[in-house]
Nucleic acid binder design. Structure first.
Lengths: 251, 251
DNA sequence: AACGATCTGTATGTTATTTCACAGATTAAA
DNA sequence: TTTAATCTGTGAAATAACATACAGATCGTT
């Protein structure tokens, strides 16, 4: 067994494929490196392939008419992106930029399409992927409609906690560094407003910030204020369990 | 050939199925009627089936913590809804309510799943459906982030024009009646603000309202102000073509 | 270790949007 | 056709969020 296959086996979508099929995907795909700040693709480019992030971190964003950046998604290793290419080649609609040095596998759309036709499991997997992402976006839409910036930010922090959270003695540590500007670009607000709101939350002892890392001291309480159903893992009393890693750490 | 099959043949998703398969779907499905204001499903209900709207109109919405209605989608005849049930049975996340007297076909989730496994075309169809809807939501999200209520409303009107527009001598007639409250619940604003904004747009002769029907007198210009790529059909000079129906009319 | 670049904190005036309140219009139902 | 319910228009007061401006902190790179 070729050791290079690990990343395909690691991805939910491909894990059930036979050796042959994996080999075929691999033969037709190519690996590339991108340094921090490099663009993987940009709008108006035609979308003929799908990407699998092997390492690093990618952000997908849109630039508004007034030049503001609207952050659409953060992609972590093992996740696919640019997957709308599977549906047939419209143009890309957003920018994909490496936030860290990243390695990416580029898989031509037709390869996936063929697989889908041959393998019901792949097909179902892609459908699930689309469905889940749609659910996420819809969830996010709801979190923005009618809500104050304060509540949007709270929602965002809890959302990040579910993806990047670590349970520590002080509370839930959000293990990713995002600037206030980036946070603002996710909730559709301004950098200054985010700064002020985070300040308020600190004054209220709901959160704690050290070296640009945010710790939710009262995750449960925050969740309560906006009807967020917090995953049970994050509800554990920190002092009981000590340090408990939820997801892959960052360097 | 059974005349009752028409509605399945009419739906993109099923049109390629064999007689047998259509018959099987039909045998396991059931038709129901809902009067205006009736609920087809509501949150916390478990989602074990998918619905195909045969006639009428359905709105999908969410109720926020403060009791405000956030409108998520309008469903027209021939469209599927509640399709997240295909992915396996989480709970429904929104309300589905008949806006008009409606007939609905209820198809059990497992039936679709079986079809997907047997038929690559169905599987691909479902994937496309999910993908397209996701694209729509994402588009909508972008239209909300960083935009003033005025711009959101403009976007909404153009969006409605693409779905419900008729070209008339005065401009693009939006052939669906929505209250200001409903418009507000789509863009996340208040009823009063929408009233005022529509008033302003009328003063500026951008739109025209008669008996609760909105006509875009300068669709092209409106589109221009918010970088909306208007479908070419709606760009035609109204006086050249007279009345041109884009989509199914309403009574 | 020092530099420049980027990020954060804070204040101040300005604007957009919400909220509340009520009167008049229009629609749907009896 | 009449009545009740819903929808629309408008205004004033309160508030949330934005834009602008600048100083100090922190980071990353050399």
């Amino acid at each position: 067994m070729d050791k290079n296959f690990w990343y395909l086996k690691n991805c939910d979508l491909f894990e059930r494929l036979s050796q042959d099929q994996i080999a075929q995907v691999e033969r037709n795909s190519s690996v590339r490196q991108f340094g921090r700040g490099n663009l993987v693709y940009l709008p108006t480019e035609s979308s003929d392939s799908v990407f699998l992030l092997l390492s690093g971190r990618i952000k997908l964003y849109h630039i508004t008419g007034e030049g503001k950046q609207a952050l659409l998604a953060l992609i972590e290793p093992g996740e696919l992106f640019g997957e709308l290419a599977i549906l047939g080649g419209g143009d890309r609609e957003e920018y994909a930029e490496a936030m860290l040095k990243s390695t990416i596998l580029r898989i031509p759309g037709p390869i996936i399409q063929t697989l889908m036709e041959q393998h019901a499991a792949v097909s179902l997997g892609v459908t699930k992927l689309m469905g889940l992402r749609r659910q996420r976006v819809e969830q996010r839409l709801k979190s923005l409609l009618f809500r104050s910036n304060r509540d949007r930010l709270t929602y965002l922090l809890l959302d990040l906690a579910e993806k990047y959270g670590r349970l520590t003695a002080q509370g839930v540590l959000i293990n990713i560094k995002l600037s206030h500007q980036e946070l603002a670009s996710i909730i559709g607000s301004t950098r200054e407003t985010v700064t002020v709101l985070l300040g308020e939350m600190q004054d209220e002892r709901s959160i704690d910030i050290q070296k640009r890392q945010i710790i939710l001291r009262k995750a449960q309480h925050l969740a309560h204020t906006i009807d967020f159903k917090l995953t049970p893992v994050l509800q554990a009393k920190p002092d009981q369990s000590g340090e408990y890693l939820l997801r892959g750490a960052e360097a």
